[in-house]
Design a protein around this nucleic acid. Structure first.
Length: 564
RNA sequence: UGUCCGAUGGUGUAAUUGGCAACACGUCUGUCUCUGGAACAGAAGAGUUCAGGUUCGAAACCUGAUCGGACAACCA
């Protein structure tokens, strides 16, 4: 680097702007919205939020924060047949948990009256009409992307007739599906969405907020832009598939002559090996193939939370994947890197043995116990130390012993000396087996002078292993989850393959013979730990319900899913 | 046989709008450590989908192609 060493020539840190920030900054410069930035996060309450929504949440709230603006939370509840209050509650909880606080909280249903009045205005202006075509006829008349559509025979009804019919639609005089209100635009438009799109449909359905007050409901395209406009949103950010809808978004607002937010599209998040379709996730829940929306295998925010992901890690992930218009597929390993990065700095270390092997220290006095100091987090001294009990009988990890070790194996084997972390050097003297030849116990000797983990003679050991004192140990249950859809990369899923193939309520590994430090007794749901050498774990909600300690593995210490 | 979008190391995003293609993750090498694929130090890796054109100069502008995506729900 030519600038090295010369402090004066170090270039100023250039802020890296994504294309949306560029639009906002340019609007700010021209004073387009009176220097206001107002975004919104507009989920439909028809399911739980997933990691893809997290990207959108971080974007919208992040932008508002960066430009000292505001962000609304708006529920796009225009289809009562799919929506429910359970979902609005979960959405609020998830957004809050992610660390964001919205300025306004609204529902599209708050605007039903205004939307209706505007529809009347469109009818009066001759820009909307009631159409009696059946669904089949309408799709026939609509044409195809390569062939223009043709006009509905009802297209030229008089304003009076339209007004009358629309009011009677509203009054519940017609059955579902019998008529719709359509915008009068252009049946020959190359953009299918401009071929006289439907504005209102008849739906005699109970709405979770407005009850039975309405039996006609606005379509997304009609309700969304207007809702943005009512809330004086400046930048309406959505995903790429709505790009084709933008002309329609603009059309309604222009016809109505109301505040005009700018719709900006960005590429949605795709995660390798992960199914993110709400419809499919709902299917898993309904078929009870998972414990619920918050099953630790689910890519939902609540599932990730229960699995031990932190808001910080998700925010870091969202920031690092960036914002662009190009389709992308992010490796799940990258998400896992983010959570390791975060947890490495803050997770309390604790020794847990997943597959215990008994070790007896033959030269350690019986009936004696002592407490040794263990560091809570080598990455963060301020987390302090704790006491770990030590006694004559211990458990170590079965994998940490090999009777006939290969060359690179430095852990315990007959005759070798290793360090018990924070404790003593021990040497394996004898291997005890059962009648099947299985190793059931090790007899070792310890060096009393190596207390704390170092020998005064400066002798080195090749390895340090973790352990727990048998009599003090806690029995805990550990759940190991795979990624949700291990073999199904959305890119590679073959046609006809069932994405639910290996998802079952109990299709994860439960280790029920784990031995842990007594320290864990006080752990509460969603506490984060690093079980030394084994990975990051979090206490499951079920611990309280079932009155025993259950831990979910958030992620292993290493990337066991590395490409290959 | 339509319209609209997009294409930059293995991955994801940049490139002050025409001026030496940068950052992060991953990969590799080394050091260190009382867990560790942690930490620390270093290296390799793209000439920007292709073919033309404009220009002193193109990832960027123009033309044509190729590949990928979106759009034909009374869903959002």
């Amino acid at each position: 680097m030519e600038n090295q060493g010369n402090i004066n020539s170090i270039p100023e840190e250039k802020p890296v702007l994504n294309f949306i920030e560029e639009i906002i900054e340019s609007d700010l410069q021209t004073g387009k919205n009176g220097n206001r930035v107002h975004t919104r996060f507009p989920p439909e309450p028809n399911g739980y939020l997933h990691i893809g929504h997290a990207k959108s949440i971080c974007l919208n709230f992040g932008l508002a924060k960066k430009y000292h603006g505001k962000t609304n939370l708006r529920f796009d509840d225009t289809n009562p047949t799919k929506e429910d209050v359970e979902y609005v509650d979960s959405i609020k909880e998830d957004v809050r948990w992610l660390g964001f606080q919205w300025d306004g909280e609204y529902f599209a249903s708050d605007y039903f009256q205004q939307l209706y009045d505007w529809a009347i205005q469109l009818v009066k202006d001759g820009k909307a009409y009631v159409c009696d075509l059946t669904q089949e006829q309408m799709s026939e008349y609509r044409g195809t992307p390569t062939r223009p559509g043709k006009e509905s025979p009802y297209r030229n009804r008089s304003v009076e007739e339209n007004l009358d019919l629309f009011q009677r639609m509203k009054n519940g005089e017609f059955p579902d599906g019998s008529r719709v209100l359509r915008a009068k635009i252009d049946m020959a438009s190359p953009n299918m969405h401009m071929r006289d799109p439907i504005i209102y449909r008849i739906l005699h359905a109970h709405h979770h907020r407005t009850g039975d007050q309405w039996c006609i409901y606005p379509m997304y395209d009609y309700a969304h832009g207007e809702s943005d406009s009512i809330e004086k949103i400046t930048h309406s950010i959505c995903t790429l598939e709505f790009e084709v809808h933008r002309p329609l978004y603009d059309w309604f607002i222009t016809q109505l002559g109301i505040h005009h937010p700018q719709q900006i599209e960005f590429a949605r998040l795709n995660l390798s090996y992960t199914v993110m379709s709400k419809r499919k996730l709902l299917q898993l829940v309904q078929e009870k193939r998972v414990m619920g929306w918050d099953d630790p295998r689910m890519p939902t925010i609540s599932g990730l939370r229960r699995r031990g992901y932190t808001p910080e890690s998700l925010r870091m992930f969202a920031e690092k994947v960036g914002i662009a218009k190009r389709d992308n597929v992010i490796e799940v390993s990258f998400l896992e890197w983010c959570i390791r990065e975060d947890l490495n700095k803050r997770a309390q270390r604790v020794m847990v043995v997943q597959n215990p092997l008994k070790v007896v220290i033959t030269n350690y006095p019986e009936g004696v116990e002592e407490e040794l100091d263990a560091i809570n987090n080598p990455e963060d001294e301020s987390m302090g130390v704790r006491k770990v009990p030590f006694s004559r009988e211990l458990y170590i990890e079965r994998d940490d012993f090999m009777e006939n070790p290969p060359k690179k194996f430095f852990r315990l084997s007959p005759g070798t000396e290793v360090r018990l972390r924070y404790a003593y050097f021990i040497t394996c003297q004898e291997v005890i087996k059962d009648e099947n030849g299985e190793v059931v116990e090790l007899r070792c000797t310890y060096d009393p002078a190596s207390r704390g983990g170092n020998s005064p003679d400066g002798r080195k050991v090749k390895s340090t292993i973790h352990w727990v004192s048998a009599q003090h140990s806690l029995d805990v249950e550990v759940r190991l989850f795979e990624r949700l859809f291990l073999k199904h990369d959305p890119e590679e899923t073959e046609e006809g393959e069932d994405f639910r193939a290996n998802i079952n309520p109990d299709s994860f590994t439960i280790l029920s013979h784990c031995k842990a430090e007594p320290f864990l007794k006080s752990s509460k749901p969603l506490d984060h730990f690093q079980f030394e050498r084994l990975g990051y774990f979090t206490t499951d909600y079920d611990s309280e319900k079932e009155n025993r300690l259950i831990f979910n593995r958030t992620v292993s210490l290493k990337d066991s899913f590395a490409k290959g």
